[in-house]
């Protein structure tokens, strides 16, 4: 236990790590909240497309010597609205259009980078993220934007639920669904840009997709899915950063690996929970005989009890 605290103390003596963790935790929180709605609306790929657009805009910003966030945010927000319009328009197939836009911006980004700084570690950092990417201005801006995203999400939670669950009904009861879809896309675009340089353009989508899918394995209410995915996301990010510090692995990839493990665990718990009915029946039959079976019997009884408590 002491060893863990020592590592944490050592970690947080570096200001760049403190900055990265603050921004990272806020971005994971925003991404997880928005992710629930995006996954359920079948918009997961929009997030992926946006991160590629973000890569292109970052490259352009670096070439122009401009502030990366100031250039990227408007471009990615614009792309988000465009992608949303495309996926609502049935005449053009949404997934193909997203693939088109994301590869196009990837190509632009790579060409711009090779013309300016050359294909070096910068490209690697953009694609897979770097913990060193944050300076003080970025942190201030990121914290403000993350708080805006959180506040908007809480304020419009009920509307976002209605638009996610049943757009037709929401529209019929006078909710401006187009506005809320834009709001979701807008908040997603900001979140992606904020998290992209740390997580990497290729990996940032995982922050959006994984936590919500993980919590959906077990949770059955929209509210609990949302809250659980927020907790999962924050915890996974923190563990991922610590591991990347201790083992000197890339931060973004480490966070994703922890998310994969969490997904596996929750999937297992979900499967056991679904089969609980049959386990319970089996447990009841075995209950009377438990005494005669020694340790194995006691174990079964304990498992049976556990199932009953989780059911409540």
């Amino acid at each position: 236990m002491n060893a863990i605290f020592e590592v944490l103390f050592e970690m947080f003596s570096y200001t760049f790590l403190v900055r990265a963790v603050i921004v990272g935790l806020l971005v994971s929180l925003c991404a997880a909240l928005l992710g629930v709605s995006l996954v359920l609306k079948r918009y997961s790929m929009i997030g992926d497309g946006l991160s590629h657009v973000g890569f292109g805009s970052l490259a352009v910003a670096t070439a122009m010597n401009a502030a990366p966030l100031a250039v990227s945010i408007p471009i990615v927000v614009l792309a988000a609205f465009l992608l949303l319009r495309i996926s609502e328009n049935s005449k053009i197939k949404g997934d193909a259009a997203i693939a088109l836009i994301s590869t196009a911006s990837l190509a632009v980004g790579v060409v711009v980078i090779s013309m300016t700084t050359g294909m070096n570690t910068d490209v690697c950092n953009y694609l897979f993220g770097s913990i060193l990417a944050m300076n003080n201005n970025d942190v201030t801006l990121s914290v403000i934007l993350a708080i805006v995203v959180l506040a908007m999400f809480m304020l419009f939670y009920n509307k976002i639920f209605a638009v996610t669950f049943d757009e037709n009904f929401a529209k019929a009861t006078g909710v401006k669904t187009g506005v809320y879809n834009m709001l979701i896309a807008f908040l997603t675009a900001i979140t992606i840009v904020l998290g992209m340089r740390m997580m990497g353009a290729l990996l940032i989508t995982s922050l959006i997709i994984f936590p919500s899918l993980t919590s959906m394995r077990v949770c059955k209410k929209f509210k609990s899915v949302t809250l659980t995915s927020a907790v999962i996301s924050v915890v996974c990010f923190f563990i991922g950063v610590v591991i990347s510090y201790v083992y000197a692995t890339p931060t973004g990839a480490s966070v994703v690996i922890i998310n994969i493990i969490a997904f596996g665990l929750f999937w297992l718990v979900g499967t056991i929970k679904d089969k609980k009915g049959s386990f319970l029946g089996m447990g009841n039959k075995l209950k009377k005989r438990c005494v005669g079976y020694g340790d194995f019997g006691t174990l079964l009884c304990a498992f049976n009890k556990l199932c009953r408590t989780t059911e409540r």
Binding site: F161, A162, F169, A170, V175, M216, K220, K221, F222, V225
Partner: peptide, 17 residues
């Protein structure tokens, strides 16, 4: 869709909000 019955019915009150 992961939502409880109560959450779904409650969303019917949205127009009054």
């Amino acid at each position: 869709f992961p939502a409880s019955v109560y959450e779904v019915v409650l969303s019917g009150r949205l127009s009054a909000r």
